[in-house]
Amino acid sequence: MIKVGIVGGTGYTGVELLRILVQHPKVRLKVITSRQESGMGVDELFPSLRGQVALKFSDPAQADLSQCDLVFFATPNGVAMQQTKKLLDVGVKVIDLAADFRIKDVAEWEKWYGMQHASPELVAEAVYGLPEVNREKIRQARLIANPGCYPTAVQLGFLPLIEAGIVDVDHLVADTKSGVSGAGRKAEVHTLFAEAADNFKSYGVPGHRHLPEIRQGLGARSQKPVGLTFVPHLTPMIRGIHATLYARLLKETDLQALYEERYIDEPFVDVLPAGSHPQTRSVRGSNFCRIAVHRPQGGDMVVVLSVTDNLVKGAAGQAVQNMNIMYGLPETMGIKHVPLLP
């Protein structure tokens, strides 16, 4: 059994991680921390876990994480980088669901996240946890930087085109939409029901902190910097990401075959039949990314549609997928949930 600790178990990604891990046959939950809810039973805060989790939240200042084999950080940006080195030094592996170790250029990270990095020496070691790209590195890793929700959907959508070298990488466009849970469980005016319901808006157009992460990932596959216009939107739904991706085609290619061949062995990437239009509800509560590729009117523009659940493949599910790979378990163990409908 893998003895697991969770730092920050009260946010949406934290409770999603709990939902998945309590059903995992090879996991034993040891510690779940929360400064604000210390001493409260996990199932008191989250009745959905009643009968599944007997633990109480621990104060992170007092919790003994060294008893764990693996610790997940489901915390705000800037927390994991303060504690990871100490854990690694005593042999505990770490998966960070925040952004502390995703961007290799530390100065770039500090610019976008507005703080000084506390463990720059670990950034180079951290493996970016996108299994469809870094599976072999993940197997050997002790520190995983779990990808962001938008970056997962966007990169998986663009990767076959980028790797094949058949599109203009200087002028890529990612038009993306996310449910309100992507903003986290904290109270903010823009995610209040009266603000977000019956509404649709873009945000972060001048620059969003997921932009350098996506550029880094796509640039590594194209072996040159990419030009990307990335525009996120907030939609009046709880879960889900829909990424509509645009690229100009440079070479004649059977796009459907390209995508099917690229992802034929990927358990959580589902390439839909030609002409399909994936819906966010088709992945709700699951670790799947569903993709459809189009070439409107047979022109030179490729349009890729990529949908995920931002809390699962975009966060907690992908983190558990990485854990399975790290420990040599079947990659789908504990995370092959059928999507919820309706």
Score class of each variant (00 low, 15 high):
residue 251 K to T: 09
residue 252 E to P: 02
residue 252 E to V: 03
residue 253 T to E: 11
residue 253 T to Q: 11
residue 254 D to S: 08
residue 254 D to F: 07
residue 254 D to I: 08
residue 255 L to D: 06
residue 255 L to K: 02
residue 255 L to F: 05
residue 256 Q to H: 14
residue 256 Q to G: 07
residue 257 A to E: 14
residue 257 A to T: 13
residue 257 A to K: 13
residue 257 A to Y: 01
residue 258 L to T: 07
residue 259 Y to N: 05
residue 260 E to D: 10
residue 260 E to H: 13
residue 260 E to N: 13
residue 260 E to G: 09
residue 260 E to W: 03
residue 261 E to D: 14
residue 262 R to H: 15
residue 262 R to P: 00
residue 262 R to E: 08
residue 263 Y to I: 06
residue 263 Y to F: 14
residue 263 Y to K: 06
residue 264 I to G: 08
residue 264 I to N: 12
residue 264 I to A: 13
residue 265 D to H: 14
residue 265 D to Q: 14
residue 266 E to I: 07
residue 266 E to S: 14
residue 266 E to F: 03
residue 266 E to C: 11
residue 267 P to K: 02
residue 267 P to N: 00
residue 267 P to G: 02
residue 267 P to F: 02
residue 268 F to I: 01
residue 268 F to K: 04
residue 268 F to P: 06
residue 269 V to I: 13
residue 269 V to Y: 04
residue 269 V to L: 06
residue 270 D to M: 02
residue 270 D to L: 01
residue 271 V to M: 06
residue 271 V to P: 05
residue 272 L to Y: 10
residue 272 L to P: 01
residue 272 L to I: 10
residue 272 L to W: 07
residue 273 P to V: 09
residue 274 A to D: 10
residue 274 A to V: 11
residue 275 G to W: 06
residue 275 G to R: 07
residue 276 S to E: 11
residue 276 S to R: 10
residue 276 S to A: 15
residue 277 H to L: 15
residue 277 H to T: 15
residue 277 H to C: 14
residue 278 P to W: 04
residue 278 P to A: 09
residue 278 P to E: 06
residue 278 P to G: 10
residue 279 Q to R: 15
residue 279 Q to I: 04
residue 279 Q to L: 15
residue 280 T to K: 04
residue 280 T to W: 03
residue 280 T to Y: 01
residue 281 R to F: 15
residue 281 R to Y: 15
residue 282 S to G: 11
residue 282 S to P: 00
residue 282 S to D: 15
residue 282 S to N: 11
residue 283 V to Q: 01
residue 284 R to A: 13
residue 284 R to M: 14
residue 285 G to T: 04
residue 286 S to Y: 00
residue 286 S to M: 04
residue 287 N to Y: 00
residue 287 N to A: 08
residue 287 N to V: 01
residue 287 N to E: 03
residue 288 F to Y: 11
residue 289 C to M: 03
residue 289 C to Y: 02
residue 290 R to E: 10
residue 290 R to C: 04
residue 290 R to S: 12
residue 290 R to Y: 08
residue 291 I to C: 08
residue 291 I to R: 01
residue 292 A to D: 02
